[in-house]
Amino acid sequence: MKAVVHVMLKPGVLDPQGEAVRHALGALGFGGVEGVRQGKVIELDLADGDTAEAEAQVRRMCEKLLANTVIESYRIEIA
């Protein structure tokens, strides 16, 4: 089974990478982009098993390593 974790900075946390991308897009002629938030996507290949247990395990992974929960939020998809 596959788990996909989407990690983004929480609202209100400054995003210098997102701002650099917004600026670069403007310099390339892509007008109208008022804001960019940069995040990351992590794909995990998990052994087949109980979906609920897999989600709980991935949540523990996020809390311990994959996301800095002070400044980042995350969303988990189990497929």
Rank of each mutant, 00 (worst) to 15 (best):
K40T: 11
L65D: 00
D15E: 12
H23F: 03
G49M: 02
V33A: 06
L65I: 07
V33H: 13
I42R: 05
G49N: 13
E43Q: 09
N68C: 11
K40M: 05
E19F: 04
T69R: 04
D50H: 07
E34V: 08
G35C: 14
E43K: 03
A47P: 06
G18I: 04
C62R: 06
Q57L: 15
G49D: 11
K64W: 02
R59H: 03
V36F: 01
D50I: 06
T51C: 15
V21P: 04
Q38R: 09
N68Q: 13
E34I: 09
K40P: 08
D15K: 04
L9M: 14
T69D: 01
G31A: 04
V13W: 04
L66K: 00
C62I: 12
E34H: 14
C62P: 07
V21R: 00
A56K: 02
E43V: 10
Q57C: 15
N68T: 07
L9K: 03
Q38T: 01
Q57N: 15
L25K: 00
A56L: 01
A67R: 06
R37C: 05
K10W: 08
E55N: 10
P11L: 12
V36I: 00
L44H: 11
M8F: 13
A67W: 03
D45V: 02
N68I: 12
L14S: 13
D50S: 12
V36Y: 03
A24S: 14
A27F: 13
I42N: 08
E34F: 13
M8R: 15
A56F: 02
M8A: 15
I42T: 05
N68V: 12
I42G: 05
P16R: 02
G31C: 05
A20G: 05
V33L: 08
L28V: 10
G49E: 14
V70N: 08
P16H: 00
G18H: 08
G26V: 08
E19R: 11
T51P: 14
E34K: 15
